[in-house]
């Protein structure tokens, strides 16, 4: 029984993963990701001018902004394309559970991001060669960055379950990712706290606690906090449950 479930999930995963390599979108996105993450690091992050070899401020700092756009670009085809082609009907009449399909497809997209992120590893080699960086923040930075990427991806999966249009899915997902990022952006949170009456501060702090940014920063500082990892994992679980509900509404 368990074996069969896994086999189904794997079959879905395999098809989805290979389909990324059949489409030019993947290559375009990976190249943009590499150019953007490296470019920001060297031009804005001024990694070469600063005297410390840490990647926190120069490299990982930019990742959320890149993911806000690129994760929806990778994920927008997840379910929208199935709806548009009508293959959703085919898939849902095959002997598998919707969860197997949801997870198989999500993991395929998540693996695409793992590969993209691995391709940036040259920057670690660069800083190790230039200086003597502390490996802790690099490891947690990569973990934080990856969790951010697949968090945005899960949000995109949820949006794509509801629409057959990739464009609509992309726009909605970017908006949601921006929202989830900005409600925890330190500058914004502080100014909101300053303008609102003091009694509302705890509410604002709570909302910002729900944001991706809050947890991302904690992790890039080099502190591997289980709480932050659990936060991202629960965001993913919630987003996939919403995906499930969206798919079910299409079959009502």
């Amino acid at each position: 029984m368990k074996n069969k479930d896994l086999a189904n999930t794997l079959a879905i995963f395999k098809r989805e993963f290979l389909s990324y390599f059949n489409s030019p979108v993947l290559y375009v996105i990976v190249v943009i990701f590499l150019l953007a993450s490296m470019g920001f690091t060297f031009f804005f992050g001024r990694i070469l001018d600063s005297d410390n070899a840490s990647l926190t401020q120069s490299f990982f700092f930019w990742h959320p902004w890149i993911y806000i756009v690129l994760a929806p670009a990778v994920g927008m085809r997840l379910w929208s394309e199935e709806h548009r082609l009508g293959t959703f009907e085919l898939l849902m009449t095959m002997p598998l559970s919707p969860w197997q399909a949801i997870i198989g497809k999500f993991v395929a997209a998540a693996l695409v991001w793992a590969i993209s992120l691995l391709l940036t590893f040259s920057i670690v080699i660069t800083v190790s060669w230039l200086g003597n960086p502390d490996p802790g923040p690099i490891i947690t930075g990569y973990a934080a960055s990856y969790l951010y990427a697949i968090g945005c991806l899960a949000v995109t999966s949820a949006a794509s379950a509801f629409t057959r249009s990739q464009v609509v899915c992309f726009i909605v997902s970017v908006a949601l990712c921006i929202l989830l990022t900005l409600i925890g952006y330190p500058g914004i949170v502080d100014s909101v706290v300053r303008t609102l009456p003091g009694s509302l501060e705890s509410l604002v702090r709570f909302v910002s606690y729900l944001s991706f940014m809050d947890h991302f920063y904690e992790m890039t500082k080099g502190i591997f906090v289980i709480r932050d990892v659990l936060y991202f994992l629960s965001v993913i679980v919630v987003a996939l449950i919403i995906t499930h509900l969206g798919l079910r509404s299409k079959r009502a």
Binding site: A11, K14, N22, L85, T87, T93, P95, L96
Partner: peptide
């Protein structure tokens, strides 16, 4: 089941599409 508009994954070949359908069916 053959649905009404004969949906297919457009990025696959005929044989790989059929292979996928076979795999999902074990």
């Amino acid at each position: 089941y053959l649905p009404e508009n004969a949906p297919l994954y457009s990025d696959m070949t005929v044989a790989s599409f059929l292979g996928f359908c076979a795999e999902v069916r074990g």
